[in-house]
Design a protein around this nucleic acid. Sequence first.
DNA 1: TTGACATGTGACTAATTAGTCACCTATCAT
DNA 2: ATGATAGGTGACTAATTAGTCACATGTCAA
Lengths: 111, 111
Amino acid sequence: MQGMLGDDDDRVFKALADPTRRHLLDRLFERDGRTLTDLEGDLEMTRFGVMKHLRVLEDAGLVVTRRSGREKLHFLNPVPIRLIHDRWIDKYTERQVSALADLKTRLEGSA
Amino acid sequence: MQGMLGDDDDRVFKALADPTRRHLLDRLFERDGRTLTDLEGDLEMTRFGVMKHLRVLEDAGLVVTRRSGREKLHFLNPVPIRLIHDRWIDKYTERQVSALADLKTRLEGSA
DNA sequence: TTGACATGTGACTAATTAGTCACCTATCAT
DNA sequence: ATGATAGGTGACTAATTAGTCACATGTCAA
């Protein structure tokens, strides 16, 4: 039981704690397979900073990569996100919580 | 669109980044309505430390509280967790991702 | 081959955050 | 009332983390 709550998931949560890294995930959610240079584009940060953040995301398993020649392509892996969900939302209450979350999103969207 | 990605969600992710706070959420997931003294029990930390962590969780909306006499009862609010989920997992891929997550949990459970 | 481009590494500094301390306030039971 | 119990505050120190730098490696296209 403690096994699945160890170092792995700590890396995931630490990775998600930074707004730049969440923004990178947003970009990859929008469209997968981007390169470092592509992702560097809209960030007010040096390339090295972005690379460091991508490394953290990759170590956490939130991003998986594939080399293609001199480019490195980045893909979003949503499984760790789902595991966070399952840790504190059981199958029985999932429907109600999901409905509440949808409601909240809709209310904020129209505001 | 930026509205729902603002300071609020930053507080949520920062709150989740600490293992002690995740443990507190685990305890509340197991059983709701605990007091500070109750939660303090199995932690190697002073009461003040625990109180500080609970405060962070409450500010993030992950924990809601209710006063009952001289006691303060703590409840887990799963909605922010679900919003994290919905940010990077769309409704169309949710089933597949969920299945993968279940598989991963089962494999680790039997290991 | 050679110049240009994409990515990678180790060390340094500045800023953030965790945990503790002494001390304070409010409520309950007798 | 009063002693015990539950919870709360502001300031301090130690540890962690973000961002940058100069420099290095590997790949493509002509």
